[in-house]
Design a protein around this nucleic acid. Structure first.
Length: 246
DNA sequence: GTCCAGTATC
DNA sequence: GATACGGGAC
């Protein structure tokens, strides 16, 4: 092996070690998170649309409304009128928009698997992802949430918290693309759906409680862990994200 | 960059 | 009252 190849290999091993350290530190504090908190795979798909840029507490109300109206299934949503769906999901916000998105996704999945998601469990993840991205209202995070949480495929979900946490620890550029961040995880961690599942859930927990727009680093479980792995970049990131806190 | 929108939390 | 939320389309 040449010198540059060796360097690449050790850089990759280091990245892997850092990513594992972050998982371990977060898991010790918050895990296991038991995500996705849906009862059925269809409920997870529906929740994936409802939770777009929306707090989960509000999504739960919308899901409860759909359940009460017997509309918490892909076939039911496919049959239902858009304005009826919109009224039911009001608590989740963006209700007109999300009603159209739910209808589009329900149509696609009824067409694809008769609304029976278990039939997709052995589909090719990359191909299915490409198809999902063609559906109105399904972007990368929603598509990947479906693949990972409803279909148990080893696809890493990136969200706003993930981006923020990585950027603040100097592991990614603040404006890194979704695909870039996903590649960081998937090329450094073995494909493992349960591990990816737990990892994303843990990042959300860290983001929600500590890595907020105004960060609370003091008792963050990643503070010591990341300091150990990337002392310099963490300190650097801190300078830019915590102007008033040491 | 702007729009979509109700709800919780400070 | 202001901020933030488990994004995506245009």
């Amino acid at each position: 092996m040449g010198n540059s190849a060796k360097k690449e290999t050790s850089a990759r091993a280091r990245q892997t070690a850092i990513l594992r350290a972050i998982f371990d530190a977060a898991f010790e504090r918050f895990g296991p998170r038991h995500w996705w908190p849906g009862e059925t795979d269809e409920e997870i798909v529906i929740g994936a649309v409802l939770t777009q840029n929306t707090a989960w507490a509000n999504v739960e109300k919308a899901i409860a409304n759909l359940r009460e109206a017997r509309m918490l299934s892909l076939k039911a949503l496919d049959r239902a009128g858009e304005s009826e769906v919109a009224q039911r999901i009001r608590p989740a916000g963006y209700y007109n928009l999300k009603a159209r998105r739910l209808k589009a996704l329900a149509r696609f999945l009824v067409e694809r698997c008769d609304g029976n998601l278990s039939r997709l469990r052995h589909a090719d993840p990359a191909a299915l992802r490409a198809d999902l991205l063609q559906v109105y209202g399904v972007g990368p995070e929603t598509a990947d949430s479906i693949l990972l949480y409803a279909l148990s495929m080893p696809i890493f979900v990136i969200d706003a918290y993930t981006r923020r946490i990585l950027a603040r620890h100097g592991l990614a550029r603040p404006n890194a693309s979704y695909d870039e961040l996903q590649k960081l995880f998937q090329s450094n961690l073995a494909p493992d759906a349960p591990y990816y599942n737990e990892y994303h859930a843990l990042l959300v927990a860290v983001g929600h409680r500590h890595c907020k727009p105004t960060p609370r680093c003091a008792d963050c479980p990643l503070y010591r862990a990341a300091l150990f792995a990337t002392r310099r970049s963490h300190a650097e990131a801190q300078r830019h994200t915590r102007p008033e806190v040491v």
